[in-house]
Simulated assay, not measured.
Amino acid sequence: MPEMFGDQVHFREPGMPDKAGISSFMDMPNTRLLALNIDALEAKYARAAECLVANFAFFLGASNDNLDDIRRLPVGAACGIKVFMGASTGNMLLDSTDVLERIFAEAPALIANR
């Protein structure tokens, strides 16, 4: 059976697990339990390990306020850093040019933009 891979999904657990259904995915950070820090990212991985049989990875979200978390992110702990330069859920709008430049200079992972 061919595998389906979602490179930009919005994981709906907890709360709406019936909305997702794919064998491999890379979850966006702007869903319930915003992934703006390492603790939230680890919680998403822990929850996924409890209830999923799919292959999974999670993006760490960028904001104007979490550069320290981005710097401390262990290599391989996230599939990338997701930068929202337009409105998104919660505190995920990154509109600081200084922070954006520092993320591009210092991020230990791939940077994805919208």
Rank of each mutant, 00 (worst) to 15 (best):
L110I: 00
C79S: 03
I38P: 03
S63G: 00
Y45R: 13
S23M: 04
M92H: 01
L33E: 15
N30H: 11
G15F: 09
C79W: 01
L52S: 08
F5H: 11
F5T: 11
A49L: 10
D65Q: 15
R72A: 11
C79E: 02
G21Y: 13
A40S: 07
D95H: 14
I111G: 05
A20I: 10
I81R: 04
R71D: 15
M16R: 13
V9R: 03
D39I: 12
F84I: 12
V9E: 06
L60Q: 06
T31L: 09
L52P: 03
L33V: 14
H10M: 07
N64K: 15
A46C: 07
A107Y: 13
A43W: 13
E101P: 02
F25S: 01
L100Y: 00
D39V: 15
F84L: 07
K19G: 08
D7T: 13
I81V: 15
L94I: 08
P14R: 02
R72P: 04
D7C: 11
T97W: 14
E106C: 05
M26K: 06
L36Q: 14
E13G: 01
S88D: 10
G86H: 15
N37C: 12
M16N: 10
N37T: 06
I70N: 13
A40P: 02
D27C: 08
F104P: 03
D95W: 09
P14F: 01
P74K: 10
K44N: 01
R114G: 11
T97D: 09
L110Q: 00
F58N: 00
A112F: 11
G90I: 00
L33Q: 12
A112H: 09
A46S: 07
R32T: 15
A49T: 09
A112S: 15
A107G: 14
A43T: 09
G90M: 00
P17G: 05
A78L: 08
S24R: 14
K82R: 04
G6C: 14
D95Q: 12
T97E: 07
H10Y: 08
S24I: 03
V9Q: 05
M16Q: 14
L36G: 12
G90H: 00
I22D: 04
M85P: 12
